[in-house]
Design a protein around this nucleic acid. Structure first.
Lengths: 331, 331
DNA sequence: ATGGCGGATGTAAACGTTATCATTCAGGGT
DNA sequence: ACCCTGAATGATAACGTTTACATCCGCCAT
């Protein structure tokens, strides 16, 4: 039960051992080392090394009234893309000596609110929300906290905060036009949940891209494989034609694909599937999936800049990342 | 540049507004609320609500000399399985009111050491290492810190610390026996890196399971899709037989599969592939992959228990999780 | 009436750090 | 000898919490 190890050394221990004051030790570790006399510097270094001292981030945070942790909330930890975005952010934040706490809201409003409170309790330097859900808690948080960053899903109307993501409408539009260009008949859309701004933008863009050619069916699904699977089963149950399906994201596309496999259909001979995000696994496990490619690694630097050097003019700014259509031909 | 929002309220603010002392406010939030008179309790509640007060985790950590963050290190953030284990741990730690910081060592010793220092700086309550690499830093850390937990890769000899994972030898053995049972000829092993204890145990178990029937080839690969792909290309280059391949993990299996696809081979008609871990995606994207199924969700509770209520007798204990062979027949 | 007891609350000292201010000291110009 | 300057360092007061200890008060047994 009792700890087997001694308490970590503090500035005081180092100060005592090296015969200087705590202020000097603090200067050594606080990046003001060049203001120290060479021999003091050396003695502090030796003492710290001997004791295995590293400054306590806790004491430091308290004194400086700002912590070094950033909270990243993902709406779905089972979606590789959101994880890749998180990983990219973590990487980029390292340059600012910030660490990232990853939390999973699982698309649950209550869970999100609980995590927001946690982040506030931790006095997080910033809160990054992939796929935020509009709740009162979120709004009161946004009012009190000036460093909430919305990723992939725009801030709900009324909240001003920076946004990082792609232009979903433009991407949907590009897919719609591509369908027309390829001469696809029997177009179908399986979009994500309508309350997710990105979903509706993607869908509207797609419809606009199709122009006069209206889609045969429009489904709405959760952004999950299971959701895509269910829609797929419905769609393919009485299948008579070769559908061309635009899916709200890759997870939905995987689900649709499974439904197609179970009916013995071939892609793209019997069914055309278009996804969104381009999950990392696609090249390996879904070489049949054409998709809107968004580079997860682009997010990190954009997010980290916003966190690391916040500025007034970025308060309500949007950072629009590039996308491109990635067409995969073979299966 | 300057913050647009006011500083968060503190115990003092709440105390002043509700006309009690800071101690009483602290008692209210510290779980000792039942020792308060009903009317005091109510007035504190109202004041806190009005100010939107939540205790600072930083102040609390400093005072209590223990933080509530746990650091989880993964060797490969692109491996869904490791992420699932992390997600499971995060979920389970929540019961102890602990939050998890996710960090990616990317199998890089220096990166790992840097992250270990970070964790120490944060005075992390525990450090959870999926796939630890044996470095001097790790050893000095283990000596000083009594709450390092090894997951999936055992503590290097000389370090006593708890281990959570499966019995890799037994799992390899089971696969070997299964190969024999099925009458597979032309057995091949593509194992993970030998310096990873789990790899060699899996391989040795597999060889033991095969018994007298020696494998045709043994490859060693990184635990990545790319690694599996390269081995696959070599293996299949001069292919004359129907190989039965045991892969060190699913990532390797995916890579091998891609190599097979590129040569136009069918699984399992032309090539038998057996993986390890059973990534969540398999049911959807790799229905051709038989594998050793390890339930990622089993890890969380085991890990959280170790962190939440550490005990002396667990110091060097092993927590062995179950596995089973998951045979998928169709493609 | 006195003493004791226990419940409710206040006081104040830590926890480890850093910024501000004060101090010391060496050296150079008069 | 004197003062001034600047460089190096020390003393100290915060930052927001929790907790051991002290205090206060009402009540009951003597």
């Amino acid at each position: 039960m009792s700890s087997l190890v001694s308490k970590p050394p503090t500035v005081h221990d180092v100060a005592r051992l090296s015969g200087v004051s705590t202020a000097t030790v603090s200067r050594y570790f606080g990046g003001k080392a060049d203001a120290l006399a060479p021999k003091t510097l050396e003695s502090v270094r030796k003492a710290a090394e001997a004791l295995g001292y590293t400054p306590s981030e806790v004491g430091r945070s308290l004194r400086l009234a700002r912590s070094r942790v950033v909270m990243m909330m993902v709406p779905d930890a089972t979606n590789t893309f959101t994880i890749d975005v998180a990983a990219s952010a973590e990487q980029a934040l390292k340059r600012f000596e910030l660490s990232m706490v990853l939390a999973n809201s699982a698309e649950d409003p209550d869970q999100q609110d609980r995590l927001l409170m946690d982040a506030y309790g931790l006095r997080a330097r910033a809160i990054i929300l992939q796929g935020a859900i509009d709740t009162p808690q979120l709004r009161s948080m946004a009012a009190r906290h000036d460093n909430i960053i919305f990723v992939n899903r725009r801030p709900p109307p009324g909240i001003v905060a920076p946004y990082v993501g792609i232009d979903n409408y433009a991407a949907g539009l590009a897919v719609g036009r591509y369908f027309i260009e390829q001469g696809y008949e029997n177009c179908v859309a399986i979009s994500g949940p309508h309350y997710y701004s990105g979903s509706s933008e993607r869908l509207e863009g797609f419809l606009a891209g199709l122009g006069k050619k209206k889609p045969l069916f429009k489904f709405e699904s959760q952004f999950t494989m299971e959701g895509g699977y269910q829609c797929g089963k419905k769609l393919l149950a009485g299948r008579q034609r070769r559908y061309a399906v635009f899916c709200g994201n890759d997870m939905i596309a995987y689900g649709l694909h499974r439904a197609a496999m179970e009916r013995g259909l071939d892609v793209p001979e019997d069914l055309i599937i278009f996804g969104f995000d381009d999950n990392r696994m696609n090249d390996w496990l879904a070489p049949w999936l054409s998709t809107v490619q968004v580079s997860a690694t682009d997010f990190g630097p954009a997010i980290a800049n916003l966190v690391g050097s916040p500025s007034l003019e970025n308060r309500g700014a949007s950072f629009i990342l590039p996308f491109r259509l990635k067409v995969r031909t073979s299966g």
